[in-house]
């Protein structure tokens, strides 16, 4: 027996492709999977939300509460009165409670639990009742279009998916990615809410005058970036769209604006 010395053949036991390409292949596979998952979940949640009966919708909106610090808010009869007036036009299957929030940012929110939050910052900014009614109408639009329910439904499914995967390393990555995409209303949703707001303003006040006033004011003051951060992107486009809509619907734009009274103490 003769021993022949031999160096290891690296073609046999080492991987045949570059690790980087190998990783790229897997990552793109994961990406395709996540995108498909996201699209399917979004589509099915939207279908379910659209077909929800008013009773179920009201139940969900009343019983699912969002974690808000209610100590930072106060009730306001004047604001509630305005919301009620607009809600008659919106024909929601539940009652919306309005609150003034101690916050200097210009913002308003429609949150689960059928709560409408308006910041003091916003109330300082608006000068007429019509302007404020437009914002409230916009938020009612989010309620009307079931945007809360849709994002809750998506959030729930993504949270479960994240939990199922989180025993693995990429689980947290997966859920973070989905969180990021989930917490925002889409631009289409914002625009749809805008147009709904215009409808509500016209329905409750008989005029669409003042509908774009707040946006224009903020554009002029260069606070666009702030509003941008508050998830309301591209509002120059939104002003245009609203104006076109008002023209198309032939809403009145000449009636006198009603000055805003005192909303909170």
């Amino acid at each position: 027996m003769k021993y022949t010395s031999k160096l290891p053949d690296e073609k046999v036991n080492r991987p045949k492709e570059y690790l980087f390409l190998f990783a790229l292949k897997l990552l793109s596979g994961l990406l395709v999977f996540v995108v498909l998952f996201y699209l399917i979940v979004t589509a099915s949640v939207n279908i379910i939300a659209e077909n929800l009966s008013p009773e179920h919708e009201a139940k969900i909106m009343k019983y699912v509460q969002m974690d808000i610090d209610m100590n930072q808010t106060q009730k306001s009869t004047q604001l509630q009165h305005m919301v009620d007036k607009l809600a008659v036009c919106a024909k929601l299957p539940y009652k919306v409670d309005a609150y003034v929030m101690d916050d200097f940012h210009v913002n308003a929110m429609a949150v689960p639990g059928a709560k409408m939050l308006v910041t003091k910052g916003l109330l300082h900014k608006v000068k007429t009742e019509n302007e404020l009614a437009m914002v409230l109408g916009h938020e009612l639009g989010h309620f009307k279009h079931k945007d809360n329910i849709k994002s809750m439904g998506k959030g729930l499914i993504f949270a479960v998916a994240g939990m199922l995967l989180s025993s693995d390393n990429y689980g947290s990555l997966f859920s973070t990615t989905l969180e990021m995409t989930n917490n925002r209303y889409s631009q289409e949703q914002e625009m749809a809410a805008d147009l709904f707001g215009v409808d509500m303003l016209n329905c409750a006040y008989g005029t669409a005058n003042g509908a774009t006033a707040l946006f224009e004011k903020m554009k002029k003051e260069g606070e666009g970036w702030k509003y941008l951060l508050a998830d309301h992107p591209d509002f120059i486009k939104r002003i245009k769209k609203m104006k076109a809509y008002i023209r198309e619907r032939e809403y009145d734009t000449s009636k006198k604006l009603i000055p805003l009274g005192r909303i909170y103490k």
Partner: peptide, 17 residues
């Protein structure tokens, strides 16, 4: 990368090296 390969199956090149 190995845990990703775990999701799809196949050989784990990063462990092989």
């Amino acid at each position: 990368v190995a845990s990703l390969a775990n999701l799809f199956g196949g050989n784990i090149a990063t462990y092989e090296t």
